[in-house]
């Protein structure tokens, strides 16, 4: 484990989560309601934002530090692009709380599934790199 990447990721994730709760508060005040009434899945979405941002930072470190980007592997570039897109989606979730949060969050999990599939394929084929193509 790279503790620098992990801790920086958690800090960034907490910043995003703070943005989420702040935005929820503004929206709830606009409607004159309390947030739990407006956002049913906030108990999952707030920790998800911390976890997902930490995972994004760690995935970027994985891609950049160990030759995936340096070798210009297509699989690594796809992973990086998916991670960046997921981060944008999560920022959108954080700053524009809506009732479609759950679906958006689920969609933003694509890069993790992609990386894990690469990992399983690498193990199965006896290769020692995630960057298969």
């Amino acid at each position: 484990m790279n503790w620098v990447a992990l801790l920086v990721g958690v800090a960034a994730g907490m910043a995003v989560a703070f943005g989420r709760v702040y935005a929820e508060r503004l929206v709830a005040r606009y409607f004159g309601l309390v947030p739990p009434l407006l956002f049913k899945h906030r108990d999952v979405v707030v920790p998800f934002l911390v976890l997902a941002t930490a995972a994004n930072v760690y995935a970027i470190w994985i891609t950049v530090a160990y030759g995936g980007i340096a070798a210009w592997r297509l699989s690594a570039l796809i992973g990086l692009a998916l991670t960046a897109a997921a981060q944008l989606v999560q920022l959108h979730i954080a700053l524009r709380p809506t009732n479609r949060d759950l679906q958006l969050a689920l969609i933003s999990c694509t890069p993790y599934v992609y990386l894990f599939a690469l990992y399983v394929a690498a193990l199965a084929t006896g290769r020692y790199s995630l960057w298969l193509f």
């Binding site: 801790l7 958690v10 907490m14 910043a15 703070f18």
Partner: peptide
């Protein structure tokens, strides 16, 4: 510095 800042941010945001 990066780790210390992360520690500070976590302590402040929690």
């Amino acid at each position: 510095v990066l780790l210390s800042a992360a520690g500070g941010v976590i302590a402040a945001l929690a």
